[in-house]
Design a protein around this nucleic acid. Structure first.
Lengths: 331, 331
DNA sequence: GAAATTAGCGACAACGTTGTCAGGGCGATC
DNA sequence: GATCGCCCTGACAACGTTGTCGCTAATTTC
């Protein structure tokens, strides 16, 4: 900028005015400055600008999710990005890998970077460490799971009801022996989905045997192993409800391996690409990930504009998409 | 920081020293400062720090890809993130949606943010606009496609050879009438994959009819329409080679719809989740997206450390994974 | 015991930008 | 012809840090 000012023969401030399109610069001067800037290939330094500017905005928001490569979260990312782009705001994303310590570290790192706001899919069991940040007015929106211990805006699915609906669908097709395969049981989403399963089973007066329930499947492979084990019992389930997209995929693998894909029913939480092309096609309880991203970002910007507005929890609808695997009847 | 200094009764510089763990502060003082910082919930301002620091590093790198929600690119993102995290560097990602104007805009935006380096999957047909940035020493690594018009490090697949191998696989299984469905023909990747198709056909002296070749499928749906049209001809192809993951999915849909999934062979470029669970399972020419992300990030950091090193193009291997759809023989 | 070294700390300037305010020029008004 | 007001423009300080250097007091060295 100094160089531009020198080349155009004007003061720093005038260059600043031209760059920011402020009123009050004669056309002639503005043209001269613009020419000089182009000639020197000048790029304004946004970080310095943000430092000096009153509002302290960095034009950056943070997004912390379980894994940016997971279809569900990458779709959320996309949704967030779309809203942010309209406002010229950049998105920094990172993966937490269900590691609570990492969550705290990355939140700290984002705070140091002064991101203007944070969209967080919490993985730690308690977000008490956020208390100070929130009190200081740092805008935070939680997605997928709610925070515990602090009060933030959040965008969630009614996991319990959605899960109960999925299980009820299986019950309605005549199943009584229904298994549940879930992820890390410390996560609230996980617990809610399990609770929904229990709810549905209870309201149908269906018995739940311990070996029909598996918690803690971390990925597709672990889910497959769990499903294989579950299906090895003499009184094995005639239907399975799986708590998450990767788990559903693992379960499909297990059913295939055992040649049971057309005999054991399956309903999965979360939709995924190609679910409709599998044989049988997979019935799922679907969340609209991109819409979640949109909404979360909108809420974040609304809170940034007005930090004092009361926090709210938005429950986005989920819907059951029957495709075949969930409509298999018990033999 | 001022407040911390005041509370601890020391100078700003001392606080700075403690925060950065510089030597030369007595234990007692350091403890006092640390306590004060905690009490005030102080977070260092990284942007100010970077501004002042000599090296002008923001601890941020940019990643520009076609779509962060596309499995191929989100896996790359993940790979980049893993390398960046080790160094305490954050990743800003954005989607270009194959829009050249957007590419220029976002590159400019990232330049203004002073990201320390850029990983770019080019979508514009010419990156001449980058000349100045590169000359000024801005580290850039290109992935997926090479830049044209400027000289950068790049990480690419040998699209032409890989594509030829895929088509040769079909030829080896007795096919002569092989179709090609590709994406936007302006993209270099696209052209190379098409060229590979032509190469393989030519070296087998197989005829290529114009209506067996479709360019410009932008998404899964368009690919499906193209495949349906292609398969409607009297001399329709007995096998199809598809140029990208979304296109493969659309083609699968078309084959299903026509009841040809087990009669028309299919080999796709790019692997995707569940490809092995489809019926038939889909034979693909697979790139290791995460490895591409790793390598690109490593190269970027190497260039950041030594801007003068000569640029190089790294060709990552791709491999053909036979799964069933590519081994169907013509009737 | 004096000189030299070292450890510990602070004052000040600077990074690249913008907000504030003051000043110069010029036409309009009385 | 003096005064007022307006339009441009520039000087300066400030944003939150850290690099440089200088100062004091304690420790070591001869």
């Amino acid at each position: 900028m100094k160089d531009v000012a020198a080349l155009a023969g004007v003061s720093l401030k005038t260059v600043s005015r031209v760059v920011n399109r402020e009123a009050g610069v004669s056309e002639e001067l503005a043209a001269r400055v613009t020419r000089a800037a182009e000639q020197l290939d000048y790029r304004p330094n946004l970080t310095a600008s943000n430092l000096r500017r009153g509002d302290q905005r960095t034009g950056t928001i943070g997004l912390l999710v379980e894994d940016v490569a997971n279809e569900f979260f990458s779709s959320i990312h996309r949704g967030v990005e779309e809203v942010a782009r309209q406002r010229g705001v950049a998105v920094i994303a990172a993966s937490l890998d269900r590691d609570p310590a990492l969550e705290r570290d990355l939140v700290g790192a984002f705070a140091s970077r002064r991101v203007d706001g944070l969209i967080l899919a919490p993985t730690a069991s308690d977000q008490g460490y956020l208390t100070n940040e929130i009190r200081s007015g740092w805008p935070i929106v939680c997605i997928d799971r709610q925070t515990t211990g602090v009060d933030t805006d959040s965008v969630v699915t009614d996991n319990r009801a959605a899960s109960a609906a999925g299980v009820a669908h299986l019950l309605a097709h005549g199943h009584r022996r229904i298994g549940f395969i879930g992820g890390r049981s410390k996560l609230a989403t996980e617990q809610d989905r399990h609770a929904g399963y229990i709810d549905a089973m209870a309201s149908a007066a269906a018995v739940v045997r311990p070996h029909w329930v598996h918690h803690g499947a971390q990925d597709s492979d672990e889910a497959m192993v769990a499903a294989l084990a579950m299906l090895a019992w003499a009184d094995s389930p005639t239907a399975i409800f799986s708590g998450q997209n990767l788990i559903t995929m693992g379960t499909v693998r297990a059913l295939r391996e055992l040649g049971l894909a057309h005999r054991v029913a399956l309903v999965g939480f979360d939709d995924f690409a190609l679910a409709d092309l599998l044989e049988p096609a997979i019935t799922v309880v679907a969340q609209d990930a991109r819409a979640i991203g949109h909404l979360a970002a909108e809420l974040l910007f609304r809170r940034m504009a007005d930090p004092s507005r009361p926090t709210a929890t938005h429950v986005v609808p989920s819907r059951l998409i029957p495709r075949g695997s969930g409509e298999i009847r018990p033999e």
